[in-house]
């Protein structure tokens, strides 16, 4: 009857632990000494990716400048384009320990139906930086400007194969469609967009796709070595130095649209007011430090600081813009 005794034991231990756990509420008042104890910095994507890079750099600058004195360990919680972490944030509603980073996929994953949660289910603390889209072709490509590509698409919508690293309906796809929409291409749905998983630049180098829509920081090395040629970038001003500064904007080429890959810092939904004002103040100070400016330069990030409330307004605006494009291609959910 040994088995039965083990089963009884399992049940007993289980009930005991469950009681202890559920008895444990979280009614501490940590307002006065905030932040105290470990903070929980989370990248909603894998190690080494854009979000990871942003939040690790932020944590490092905050530590080096002494703006935040407590320890800020960074962990990764990847999955479904950041949606997995967005769901876990709902479980820590109203708490103040979790700090996370997001960018346009926060809005896109909600609009395309990946997740029910939107930018309204997080607390925007500050927009920090911007990267821009760049549209690159192989060095020997016949296309010289964005307009060449658009003309070709107008003549035959299937003639130019667009590639990107994100999936259909996500950032690399949308940032191209915004430009195509601006020049008046109607059947955006018909444009062939091929999603590659990180290896898109190899595909455009090998001539397997015609145009690669990506982030400027992803292909700096290949543009500098002149293996890839940039047709245009999506900012409203020239960025960077040297050969990067030579890349004209879409606006200069007469395409009246911009796309900003913004990255900002967020807290959990209904973050307590004392914590929100603490972080707004910290980030306002941080963006002025030399350490932050140096980090931006190293990574090729443009300054895009916006305080929490303004950031929230901005999120509302881009939400409408992305909604328009997604509904044109029938991916609005």
């Amino acid at each position: 009857m040994e088995k039965r005794r083990i089963v009884t034991l399992i049940a007993a231990v289980f009930i005991l632990t469950a009681t202890v756990v559920f008895a444990a509420g979280s009614g501490e008042n940590e307002e006065a000494q905030y932040p105290k104890g470990n903070l929980d910095f989370v990248a909603p994507g894998g190690a080494g990716g854009g979000w990871d890079l942003t939040i690790r750099t932020t944590a490092k600058v905050l530590k080096d400048t002494g703006l935040v004195k407590v320890s800020m360990p960074v962990r990764n919680n990847p999955g479904a384009g950041g949606s997995v972490h967005l769901t876990s944030l709902q479980e820590v509603k109203g708490t103040a320990r979790t700090i996370t980073v997001y960018s346009p996929p926060l809005i896109l994953t909600n609009l395309n139906g990946t997740t029910e949660y939107s930018y309204n289910d997080v607390t925007p603390l500050a927009r920090l930086i911007a990267d821009y889209a760049v549209y690159v072709v192989a060095a020997d490509s016949p296309y010289k400007t964005m307009n060449d590509v658009m003309t070709a698409l107008k003549k035959d919508i299937k003639s130019v194969k667009i590639g990107g690293n994100s999936s259909v309906g996500s950032m690399d796809h949308i940032q191209f469609l915004i430009m195509a929409k601006a020049v008046g291409i109607k059947n955006l749905k018909e444009i062939d967009y091929v999603s590659f998983d990180e290896s898109g630049s190899a595909q455009v180098l090998g001539g397997h796709i015609d145009l690669f829509s990506t982030g400027l920081s992803e292909v700096l090395g290949l543009i500098e070595s002149r293996d890839l040629r940039a047709l245009a970038q999506s900012s409203d001003h020239r960025v960077g130095e040297g050969i990067i500064a030579e890349i004209s904007t879409c606006q200069e080429q007469g395409i009246d649209a911009t796309f900003v890959n913004w990255r900002g810092i967020f807290g959990p939904p209904e973050m307590p007011e004392y914590a929100v004002s603490y972080w707004r103040d910290i980030f306002a100070k941080m963006v002025k430090t030399d350490e932050w400016k140096a980090a931006r330069k190293t990574n090729g990030w443009d300054d895009a600081y916006l305080d929490g409330p303004d950031f929230k307004t901005f999120l509302g605006e881009v939400n409408e813009e992305y909604k328009g494009v997604l509904s044109d291609i029938g991916m609005l959910n």
Partner: peptide
């Protein structure tokens, strides 16, 4: 069920402990 709620150390103690009992006897 317990992993996140009770934390790693305690839940693992229970899990591995019970499994050891299962293998070695009470």
């Amino acid at each position: 069920f317990l992993f996140v709620r009770a934390g790693y150390v305690i839940s693992t103690f229970i899990f591995v402990g019970l499994e050891l009992l299962l293998f070695s006897g009470i």
